[in-house]
């Protein structure tokens, strides 16, 4: 996963000040959330209608220029924020809703079911994420939910693997034995004793997967498998801009690219900061 590499780099960069990292990540995300919510007020033009001459370089009236159809790139990016968030959140939520319960149940029960399900999940995991998403997206056709679903399939194994391995350690903890000893049903043991103890790690994966799914979505749109144009979408805009790069129309690539990079960075920093928060390295020692 790309976000893993980003996180590694960030860790080296910030070393002791993980708090600062989380704050910067949070600020970036907060910025994009505000942009998404207030898109109608922020964008100067209708993003799906021409608002000036085509292929206009950045000027005062079009601060990020226009594309080949004369759409205002700034407005498209602003509206595209909504799409980025929507797909990322829906995809990650689907992956979590499937991956977490399956991981909990299979991890706790163990045995043969564990071996079978883990094998299935591992084979999905072993498949290159983007290619798998492409295959599913191609099968399902365009549309927000279809895209989200094809991205979700890629990330189900991430949840499953982390949850399952955590559950298999947690279930041998004495407090789980204690719960069995007081006569708790399996459903209650999993719900009240196992799940809360694996929850912190899911929060971290959640924000990490958000970053990854934005990248994947951009990738899908880049390949023309994403949202149907002219709906504003960063990946689609980036793909389109790429055709004009030989023409020296750099603004069509630069700004969508920057948007994708910064939001992914924001999620990654936030995730890394959270991770540090939940696994404190500098603790009390005697």
């Amino acid at each position: 996963m790309i976000s893993k590499e980003i996180r590694k780099g960030l860790r080296g960069l910030f070393k002791d000040s993980s708090g600062l990292m989380a704050v910067i990540g949070f600020l970036i995300l907060a910025f994009y959330v505000v942009v998404a919510i207030f898109a109608p007020f922020i964008s100067p033009y209708n993003p799906t209608q021409p608002s000036g001459p085509s292929l206009l370089p950045p000027t005062i009236s079009h601060i990020m220029g226009t594309d080949n159809l004369g759409y205002d790139i700034f407005s498209r990016l602003v509206w595209g924020t909504r799409m980025a968030f929507a797909i990322a959140l829906i995809a990650t939520a689907i992956a979590a809703v499937v991956g977490i319960p399956v991981g909990l149940l299979v991890g706790y029960i163990g045995g043969k079911i564990d071996r079978v399900v883990t094998m299935i999940m591992d084979s999905i995991y072993a498949f290159p994420g983007l290619i798998l998403a492409i295959a599913i997206a191609a099968m399902l056709g365009p549309g927000l939910l279809n895209i989200a679903f094809s991205i979700a399939v890629v990330y189900i194994p991430t949840y499953y693997r982390v949850i399952r391995s955590q559950v298999s350690t947690v279930k041998s903890e004495l407090y789980v034995d204690g719960a069995r000893a007081i006569g708790a049903r399996t459903s209650i043991i999993i719900g009240s004793y196992v799940f809360p103890n694996v929850l912190p790690s899911t929060i971290v994966i959640f924000s990490m997967n958000l970053a990854d799914s934005i990248m994947t979505e951009a990738g899908l749109s880049f390949l023309g498998l994403g949202i149907a144009p002219p709906t504003p979408d960063w990946g689609y805009d980036l793909a389109k801009g790429q055709q004009f790069i030989l023409n020296n129309d750099w603004w069509m690539v630069l700004f969508p690219g920057l948007a994708i990079i910064t939001i992914v960075l924001g999620f990654s920093m936030f995730a890394e900061g959270l991770d540090e928060y939940f696994n404190p390295n500098i603790g009390e020692k005697r």
Partner: peptide, 12 residues
């Protein structure tokens, strides 16, 4: 003394 997140601990 140990410096920790929630303040310093005097160990010795």
């Amino acid at each position: 003394e140990y410096l920790t997140r929630d303040g310093n601990l005097k160990a010795v």
